[in-house]
Amino acid sequence: MTTMPLRNTATLAWRTLVQIKHNPFELIDFSVQPIMFLLLFTYVFGGAMAGSPAEYLTFALPGIIVQNLIFATMNTGIGLNTDISKGVFDRLRSLPISRFAPLAGRISADVIKQAWAIALLLGLGMVLGFRIETGPVAVLAAFGLLLVFAMSLSWLSVLVAMLASAPEKVQIFGFVVFFPITMASGAFVDPSTMPGWLEAFAEINPTTVLTDAVRGLLSGGPVAGPAIWSLVWAAGFLVVFAPLSVRAFRRRV
Results as ranks from 00 to 15, higher is better:
126 M>W: 03
120 L>K: 05
87 G>S: 09
91 R>I: 05
100 F>T: 08
123 G>E: 04
145 L>K: 01
87 G>E: 08
102 P>A: 04
132 I>Q: 01
103 L>Q: 09
84 I>M: 13
122 L>E: 01
141 A>K: 02
106 R>H: 10
145 L>R: 01
129 G>Y: 08
81 N>Y: 00
134 T>I: 01
93 R>P: 00
124 L>F: 13
80 L>A: 07
108 S>M: 12
119 A>M: 12
95 L>V: 02
124 L>R: 01
103 L>E: 07
100 F>Y: 15
94 S>K: 05
126 M>A: 12
104 A>M: 11
121 L>N: 07
133 E>S: 15
98 S>A: 12
125 G>H: 11
108 S>G: 01
136 P>C: 00
112 I>G: 06
135 G>E: 13
135 G>I: 01
106 R>S: 13
125 G>V: 11
137 V>Q: 06
119 A>D: 07
87 G>Q: 08
134 T>K: 00
88 V>P: 05
83 D>K: 14
80 L>I: 15
90 D>Y: 07
93 R>G: 05
124 L>W: 09
100 F>P: 01
107 I>G: 01
84 I>T: 04
105 G>K: 01
129 G>R: 08
80 L>E: 06
84 I>W: 09
139 V>R: 00
131 R>V: 11
87 G>V: 11
86 K>S: 12
111 V>R: 02
94 S>E: 07
121 L>Q: 15
120 L>A: 07
93 R>S: 14
120 L>E: 09
86 K>W: 12
95 L>Q: 13
113 K>A: 14
116 W>H: 13
118 I>M: 14
88 V>E: 13
117 A>C: 10
129 G>D: 07
116 W>R: 03
113 K>M: 14
107 I>V: 15
112 I>K: 08
135 G>W: 09
84 I>E: 04
81 N>C: 14
113 K>D: 06
132 I>W: 02
123 G>T: 06
142 A>M: 03
108 S>N: 01
96 P>Q: 10
93 R>F: 10
89 F>R: 06
132 I>V: 15
123 G>A: 05
103 L>V: 14
82 T>H: 14
90 D>R: 08
84 I>D: 02
118 I>S: 09
121 L>E: 14
122 L>D: 07
112 I>M: 15
99 R>Y: 14
142 A>D: 02
134 T>S: 04
97 I>R: 01
113 K>W: 11
125 G>T: 12
127 V>P: 08
109 A>K: 04
109 A>Y: 10
124 L>K: 02
104 A>L: 14
128 L>A: 06
105 G>A: 03
